[in-house]
Design a protein around this nucleic acid. Structure first.
Lengths: 324, 324
DNA sequence: TCCGCGCCTGCTCATATGAGCGGCTAGACT
DNA sequence: AGTCTAGCCGCTCATATGAGCAGGCGCGGA
């Protein structure tokens, strides 16, 4: 016996199509109730319901989600679900230039801060060009305490990775700022310890436990893909890589599972540790570029981050990896 | 006092956007209930409802109605509403060539017949190239009686306007056919009367009162835009135009209000009268080309037609006219 | 500090909606 | 003709949903 395959259960004609389309428009777009539509079109409410459902099944109704900002909603949702994130936001940035991507990502991250930070909360910021881009784009922020989570980056564009981010955020929100006047990576452990003891810096470090929401950049532990990597000496780099480091947050290295990697570098870093970061209720991680996929995956699977803001290229790489 | 204008009642951030988008997708596309979504997303059902509604208002959810066939759903609905039609079907045909438009229109009209004609009904067909295109595209038709409503057109492509349409439809549906072997326009009234009395033709004419659904082409009473116009003598044309004729159906002229225009030509026509046509419960009018807008408007406003099948150019012209 | 206002939340209850049922009809096969 | 089946329709009743309301909360002005 051949199974009862339906060749074409019900071929709908043009009249049906047009009416279904009109129903769909008034239901989905105008938000009318099915009962209203039944009266308006002179149909039973059951028929309305059945037509709408069939229209959906036939793909007549194609709901396109068009966010006003450049956010890829579908990719965001997929990414968030696949990695069990609280939230994922994929910025659909057409250009490939690092500067443009950072500025787009920053704009979205800035909006996100405005949205998530509530008054009297403590906001923590790491130092990176991406975080700087976010604070540059910041326009609205609840009055909150702003804490610098890491020492400053001494890179070519010094202003980007500096205390400036904290100052700006505090100014916009109208709250207190806790900066760290000191480099992220120090020559040796002793200097690092000394600086950490300095009174202003210690005041900042003491805020770490109070941070309610942190925005940090995630770096890959690879050539040219992390500012910290660039700062480290060749020997230290090798040692860290050998120890399993694939990425870093604020100079703190982690392995493919997202667990901290303790190397000699760790002692020389001025800033929040990964364990401290884990205790922050809401960590927003910023990251872009598909070449950082390994580090991203580690950070996400390791649960270092609650909310992940990224660009489409990296998001796609992550989603495809997870699908395979 | 300045009125309480809200500058921006609630600026939603990226997190809200992404969640709203996810909700919208699952609601509109996957057809989940709001209560389900509330559980799935850990929200109250009220919040879900409000987010969905706000998303709709903000235009975040853009429901695109995409019909599988080349039908412009929006234009169809608008046109139908503006002219108070039972149904309007606008075929979105990209090409401009008459032949292509006719064949596309015909395909849709054929589907429409398959959809609307029920068994044992009496279907009437006028003679025209567009109606011929429809019967050529016909694949499914309920068993019904097919009646030719007008005499045959003696044009360059004779097959198109011939008895062939009736024969084809009757064959496909498997019902009886009532053809008219005789021209639509006769040299004089006496000949017309004589032919109408001929037994086979009279049998057909007697069916006119039983026709439950008619498919007719609407012509414009203008140079080159109506096959009948071409057949008439210059003198007759002028007289008809002077009498107010703007269009014709099966050679029967009507004025700008859709009322019959009685001229000498009327006596020489073999076929259904406009008054007889009005008594048909469902008249499907076929027409295309924006240059026929005047005739179209007259036929529609005059209520000569219940269902109007047309191309996008004509539909747009009509809609814009009505809007002004 | 107190108050009023705007905004958000979740509640209640009347209404809208969905799932499943049984009746009806038409076409296919015996 | 009898009968079977697939659609289609509209009903019932349990559930989902909407409109409107009241409480809470942060902000800004007196």
């Amino acid at each position: 016996m051949a199974p009862p395959i339906k060749t074409s259960p019900s071929r709908r004609g043009p009249a049906w199509m047009v009416q279904a389309a009109a129903l769909a428009r008034r239901f989905h777009l105008d938000g009318r109730s099915k009962t209203e539509l039944a009266e308006e079109f002179g149909l039973s409410r059951f028929k309305v319901a059945r037509m709408l459902e069939e229209a959906r099944e036939l793909g007549v109704v194609d709901v396109t989600i068009t966010l006003p900002t450049h956010i890829d909603a579908d990719l965001s949702t997929t990414l968030g679900e696949q990695y069990g994130l609280r939230r994922a936001i994929v910025v659909d940035v057409p250009t490939r230039s690092d500067v443009d991507v950072r500025s787009q990502l920053g704009a979205v991250a800035a909006d996100l801060l405005g949205e998530l930070v509530s008054a009297d909360e403590v906001l923590g910021l790491s130092c990176s060009r991406t975080v700087a881009a976010a604070t540059e784009a910041l326009t609205t922020l609840a009055p909150c305490t702003v804490v610098q989570l890491t020492g400053t980056l001494a890179g070519p564009d010094i202003a980007a990775g500096s205390v400036e981010s904290v100052r700006r955020a505090a100014a916009i929100g109208g709250g207190q700022g806790f900066p760290i006047y000191g480099p992220m990576l120090l020559p040796d452990a002793a200097t690092a310890r000394a600086l950490a003891g300095e009174s202003a810096i210690r005041a900042t470090i003491e805020q770490f436990g109070r941070v309610g929401i942190a925005m940090v950049a995630i770096g890959a532990w690879r050539d040219d893909l992390s500012t910290v990597w660039t700062l480290a000496e060749e020997r230290a780099r090798r040692a860290a890589t050998k120890a399993g480091a694939v990425g870093e947050i604020g100079g703190r290295l982690f392995d493919a599972s997202g667990n901290p990697v303790a190397t000699e570098l760790d002692e020389r870093i001025l800033g929040i540790t990964l364990d401290q970061l884990r205790r922050v209720p809401e960590v927003i991680g910023l990251m872009y570029d598909a070449r950082r996929a390994d580090a991203a995956r580690a950070a996400l699977l390791g649960g270092l981050v609650d909310t992940f803001v990224t660009d489409a290229s990296l998001a796609r790489a992550l989603v495809e990896e997870a699908a395979a």
